[in-house]
Design a protein around this nucleic acid. Structure first.
Lengths: 208, 208
DNA sequence: AATTAAATTGAACATCGTTCAATTAATGGG
DNA sequence: CCCATTAATTGAACGATGTTCAATTTAATT
């Protein structure tokens, strides 16, 4: 039997979280099981409920780590910021695509539809989402001063949704008929270039 | 006990399908259960396996009906086709948003990530997806002759992904910080108008 | 050393999808 | 008309799931 002071509360939490992450990494969310997690940690299913309260709560913490990693990855290309807005957006989209490819199971879990709606009520969760939106806002803001913050938020969310939608339908395999020469990068490029060009002629930009 | 000739094979299939649809309509995919379906039909869980083989197969048939209904709904506004491409696209997007709102549980089931990947291999399934893409292609084709069919497919899939991404993040409640005055319709409009305007200056269109 | 508090456990509960031998009903032949 | 064959239907069972909780074991406190 695992002894009470083998691990502190924080150690135990990390232990369970790491075990769950390892399980999802290799088997996806279908393979995440209270009994499997507890077997990997040397504890027992009940321990997860002592620490996290429920499997959904555990998943929520996994998603939190996923979003932190996503933010970290997407912050990198922004460091090498150019003056070209379109180029910066394409770099961001490219980093997002790479993240999706490298962390597919976690990305799928993040957007799983069967999670409780209480998630929406969690402020810290929405805060992480907003921080991701801000990455696009920061790229856009230098050239978008006419429309005010409201329009800036709109545009950033439009772009973000489109990036996500492209990755999502790609993952669902619904782009097969486009042909192999046409890939996600090409579609993203055409989207960003056209959309941003169209925005300019829409009295939204401050400078060409 | 249900007698052998109470229902023909086709009647039984329809009976089960309708029961499952009714269950999902009011409780979402979480409430769909072999035992619940069989209880509603007056049969027994094993009967579902005689007719459909598995619960996943049953869900696949539900998704097929969902896509048929979606195609039917999206075909309507196209009937009142104007000359304005942007207006036609916005009508299509609006119809899609209405469909999502009216059939949320079925829409969520359609894009559930936990379905087997064999679905991708089903030709009739991909055929229904392609037919939806064609709705956008038909709107675009009158004004997009320069880029060839390859570009037409790209643009249609970009728009479709963007529509979907907007609805998806909206459903996930991640647009709360945009403000109540800014809704999906406004974002869709800004997206379509800007994107199409940008495309025109990209030597893709045949006429202004 | 004895008492209290906390952590850990293992068994149990109600479900789930799925399988399958047994039972029941319809069919066809003599 | 009855019996044998075939097909549909059933109910019980299996392994697995999330979750709860009383009992046990351990650490801390008096």
């Amino acid at each position: 039997m695992a002894r009470r002071s083998d691990h502190s509360r924080e150690e135990l939490q990390r232990l369970i979280l790491d075990a769950a992450i390892s399980i999802i990494r290799e088997g996806g969310k279908e393979s995440l099981t209270a009994r499997r997690v507890s077997a990997k940690t040397g504890y027992v299913p009940g321990t997860i409920y002592n620490v996290f309260g429920s499997m959904d709560a555990l998943i929520m913490h996994i998603n939190a780590k996923t979003m932190d990693l996503l933010y970290h990855e997407l912050s990198k290309p922004e460091a090498t910021k150019k003056d070209d807005v379109v180029e910066n957006l394409l770099k961001l989209a490219s980093a997002y695509r790479k993240f999706v490819a490298d962390n597919k199971n976690f990305w799928l879990l993040l957007f799983d539809t069967s999670l409780p709606d209480d998630r929406i009520a969690l402020d810290w969760y929405q805060g992480k989402v907003d921080k991701l939106f801000e990455l696009i806002e920061n790229i856009l803001s230098p050239v978008m001063t006419k429309g005010g913050p409201q329009k800036l938020r709109m545009v950033s969310r439009i772009l973000w949704s489109s990036f996500h939608g492209l990755c999502y339908l790609e993952e669902k395999g619904q782009f097969r008929t486009v042909g192999k020469s046409t890939n996600l990068a090409d579609m993203t490029e055409l989207l960003v270039e056209s959309f941003m060009a169209g925005l300019q002629n829409n009295k939204t930009f401050s400078k060409a």
